[in-house]
Design a protein around this nucleic acid. Structure first.
Lengths: 245, 245
DNA sequence: CGTACGATTGAGAGACTTCAACAAACGTGG
DNA sequence: CCACGTTTGTTGAAGTCTCTCAATCGTACG
């Protein structure tokens, strides 16, 4: 049997995520559940896919926390996005054969590999499902654009506030956040590489946000006492996430 | 008749573009040519789609030069990409109903509107064509990522060199560039908003690039005497454009 | 031939970086 | 369960890339 109870609960991460951006019929849901998945557990700081590779599977995140990044010739790193359970950070490999960036786990994560071929078969059979995944890829792109805006035109303080709002909302959409906070297993160094800043400056900006009472951050535990205030500080408008309702 | 000779030559812009990233069968080509298109001419500095709108058509660029941008609450602008003939800058609207950015013409341009419904019908009928457009959207996203890298981790000088390389290669892919140069109808102010810089600094960086013999730029006419040198200066690696061969 | 937009220049200011050191937290083995 | 090493966070000071302001210059077009 393809869909053991165990695998179903795993695929649910994907269903939960897809449901947060679109409607699925029961038949489509079952088709997703029937997708063959090879689960593996990866340690923190381990690559899931590497720049230049030509994957034949897609990686669905079941648990953990993952980022997309690229290392420049001079060793600098740019993190281009964070990915959470339910996300498929290398969905692009379905149509773009060579990876132009790497994907790595920030903490121990469990990852399900879905062969491209099976995915393609299902999408041909259920075109609506294809549209939903396409839509998902477009939301990914919308997030890139929003980050570009931050990198190009927002201050360090705003950028940090913005990314924390984004993570809170995205985690909440898949029920992985508390009402006024969430778990953000991202080091200051990683935030720096995501926000185009130095680690030192990230540290100072976080202190400012704390001083202003916008966040309480101890280790990876983030509390947001007043989301509206943080949102205003970061000019965060969730439209770009294209969540339903 | 849908496909008059005139319209065919227009749709060719799209075919030329799609052919630069994937293979199309004759039947698929004809399906593209048969797409109904409503052509309009827009002036420079005119919006084609606006942030917040819910378009029911996609805009195919037949001629001209277009950018995707967003205005921030404080009036700052971030340009998130340049679009050239053959591009469909608002293809996302097919699956993302609300625009989260605007698209505007930088110079007088002619734009063909293709109703979503017709596009959807063709893509259902020719799933391979759907994959090709999806692929195109993924390349768009890859360009966003590359710009993010620039904004986050590259110097102003590198960023400028990089964007000029990108434009030259993309224009060449649709036969709109000379062997060692092209026409770039972008003001220094617009480059500034694209690269996350001030106009003044763009001006100085351009002078540096000229001084170093990497570019000859008079008005909108760009000459690149030694592409390899400009490429090296901007750390430009065309992989992310996912062009064929 | 004036007007307007884009390009250019100079000078001073500011946000963020780099370097370098130290403190705290964490995990792991004895 | 403590000791120790490694990772992560914090602080200070000096430096720099890029910005802002504000004026001037060039040039295309009506």
């Amino acid at each position: 049997m393809r869909s053991s109870l165990h695998e179903q609960s795993q695929a649910n991460a994907l269903l939960r995520k897809l449901s947060s951006v679109a409607d699925l019929s029961d038949e489509e849901k079952q088709a997703v559940l029937d997708l063959p998945m090879n689960v593996k557990v990866v340690d923190a700081d381990t690559d899931i896919v590497r720049d230049g590779e030509r994957p034949s599977v897609c990686a669905l995140i079941l648990s953990g926390f993952v980022c997309r990044y690229k290392i420049l010739p001079d060793g600098k790193r740019q993190i281009m996005g964070f990915y959470i359970p339910g996300d498929i950070p290398d969905l692009q490999s379905l149509h773009l054969h060579v990876m132009d960036n790497s994907v790595g786990a920030l903490v121990g994560s469990s990852i399900a590999s879905i062969p491209h071929q099976n995915l393609r078969d299902v999408l041909r059979r259920y075109p609506n499902l294809g549209d939903i995944l396409w839509r998902d890829a477009l939301i990914d792109a919308a997030i890139f654009r929003e980050w570009m805006i931050g990198l190009g035109r927002r201050s360090a303080y705003q950028r940090m506030a913005h990314v924390l709002c984004e993570l809170q909302i995205r985690l909440k959409a898949v029920r992985l956040a508390r009402e006024n906070g969430c778990d953000v297993p991202v080091t200051q160094n990683e935030f720096a590489d995501a926000l185009g800043l130095s680690t030192v400056h990230v540290n100072r900006v976080l202190q400012d946000l704390r001083k202003d009472g916008l966040i309480v951050l101890r280790g990876s535990t983030l509390e947001i006492p007043d989301f509206g205030a943080l949102q205003a500080a970061g000019e965060f408008d969730p439209t770009y996430l294209h969540l339903r309702r």
